[in-house]
Design a protein around this nucleic acid. Structure first.
Lengths: 352, 352
DNA sequence: TTGAAAGCGATACCAA
DNA sequence: TTGGTATCGCTTTCAA
């Protein structure tokens, strides 16, 4: 009696449905396998009986033999920066559409991605998406050996054989530079994010080199240290201790917000006294308090490419070659950049 | 030859380690089971050999028999509102500390939580955390039957037997009301969030009833419709079409930001002309552009209670009774609220 | 403390 | 199209 009640409390198995219908257990399995050969009639009967008994295939048991879990892992370094949460949102929507579950991992502060991957591989995820961080080549090799496709999103490592998808940061820096020069500015500054990240370095390079090409060989570089509001703010304050630039390009929107607030606290008007541009186009960039000129990531496209690279789009093989896809971002001009209200005399002279 | 290479590419199993060491496979299993009876010597040898062969226990196979996956599911409705992503961040840190992985689900727009739960139960998660949404009593019963603990976070359903953890929203509304009255305001408004959410309703009730107790029986109620910047902004614009209040309490910070921007666009100063308060204390609430007075959720405490309710804290049983834990939030006073610069005459008269 | 053997709940191959 | 049967990689009695 007690045992019976216990049995009841457990979930129904394929065996239960088979007995109920007087067929073999294999048949039940087939009814739940889209490609299997079962008569429509039988499948209908099985599905019906399953619904009645509350049977659902046990994905754990299935995974044990198929070696696929229908789960994709997303490693995300930062849940505070709205850019990454927006990116996460987009990725999850696409994964859901592809019938995949999301296993989310966020390495603790100071913890390397390499440290969380083994735990991940244990779960036999069908693919791994790593945002805002990179991977050692040893770890990449282990993943390749396990045949678990990995793709780096918003980062890439030139030397290592890992797939990567990213916005074209060099181009983004160039777009910002051209825009600021077109507005007539002559003294520029760049506020860097994480010093070792390809994102920050590329944006800087695109910005600085384009400025040089356009006839402005010097650009103040201020190290922010990290992609945060506070980092942007203090960097901006340091910037003001020297001769203030006409226009500042921050490595990310959140930093730009901090910078704008610092400039305003110093009594400056944006863009009247100083123009500010960011990168990412987070939702708050549209808010009138900031109305930030920035580069918009092609999120939808990026997500599509990532899924394709993982082999999650039907007619596509996971490509294992360590190639990098760069996607062009879009310059979004808002009111944080504009011509200067009071150009200084000597600068005008320089142009003339 | 080909087969051998295939074998190599697959991950090592406990069997492989056993052969390598000349012991039984059971022994390998025991070495990886903390409570099992193995000699320290043997365990050391096994761990060492495992590391050498790159063996890690297959959690899928383990889960099949133990019926526990070490995964906890978090259902989150919104990845755009920084409050929810901050909450997610806190929860994940605590789950990680408890050795649990996070399976993240975000129902699509217009999709009910009930619809995503079956998929979740298939994965045999050890617990389910649902934020910003609720659950039908049928679904709750199914979870109870499966013995999967569920806890609602930041929501609760009075009638249904589901565990819930939430900030005390009624008290929060009261705290805001008392603060605004103490500042000398006399005409109030509340901007609601999602009309059917317990969060919005409770905040409103606490606010309105406290105002009444303090001698201000009337309070304008404006329906925002949802918890978004845009909703807050348009609600504020509607509010201004009537006689503007002295102080407005928005159901969430993000709405309050939209409201403040709308007020400023209308030429009003905050708090000189109008005081604004929010709820949640998201990171941006500290930014000088807003510097928002709000209620801070006790995130750490909430996360701890949730884990305890799920039975994830060692010496704690998952409590299956559908009780609700309300935790007191903290009033954080910033500069979006303050005394009015120019009190109108007739209002002053009312007080006298 | 260790080894042998019986499952866990499915999939997949081979006959029928 | 269906029914048997051998896995998948581990945990868990039960003996030794």
């Amino acid at each position: 009696m007690k045992d019976q009640r216990r049995q009841r409390s457990k979930r129904a198995t394929a065996e239960d449905v088979a007995r109920h219908l007087g067929v073999s257990q294999s048949t039940i399995s087939r009814a739940f396998t889209p490609a299997a050969s079962v008569s429509d009639d039988m499948r209908r009967k099985v599905i019906e009986a399953a619904a009645q008994l509350g049977y659902q295939p046990n994905v754990i048991a299935r995974s044990l033999i198929t070696r696929r879990t229908n789960m994709v892992a997303i490693v995300i370094g930062n849940l505070v920066d709205p850019f990454y949460t927006t990116l996460l949102d987009t990725l999850m929507q696409h994964l859901r559409a592809a019938g995949k579950q999301t296993l989310l991992l966020s390495p603790g502060p100071g913890e390397h991605v390499d440290a969380v991957l083994p735990a991940l591989l244990q779960y036999q995820v069908d693919g791994i998406i790593i945002t805002s961080a990179t991977l050692s080549s040893e770890m990449a090799q282990i993943c390749a050996q396990r045949e678990t496709p990995v793709v780096l999103l918003n980062r890439y490592v030139p030397g290592v054989d890992i797939q990567a998808v990213s916005c074209d940061n060099v181009l983004g820096g160039r777009q910002i530079a051209e825009h600021l020069v077109a507005l007539g500015h002559q003294r520029f500054a760049f506020v860097a994010g994480q010093p070792d990240s390809s994102t920050s370095l590329d944006r800087q390079q695109g910005f600085v080199s384009t400025l040089a090409q356009l006839g402005f060989p010097s650009c103040a570089i201020e190290q922010g240290g990290e992609y945060s509001y506070e980092a942007g703010r203090t960097a901006a304050q340091r910037l003001l201790q020297r001769e203030p630039p006409h226009a500042v390009f921050f490595a990310s929107d959140i930093m730009a917000f901090g910078g704008m607030d610092a400039f305003r606290e110093a009594g400056m008007e944006v863009p009247g006294d100083i123009s500010v541009a960011g990168f990412n186009d987070v939702p708050a960039a549209t808010w009138p308090a900031y109305s930030l000129t920035t580069i918009r990531h092609p999120l939808e496209t990026m997500a599509q490419v990532v899924l394709r690279r993982l082999g999650l789009v039907p007619k596509e093989e996971p490509s294992c070659v360590g190639s990098t896809t760069l996607i062009r971002g879009e310059l979004v001009i808002r009111s944080s950049t504009g011509p200067r209200r009071t150009p200084d005399k000597d600068s005008v002279q320089l142009v003339a």
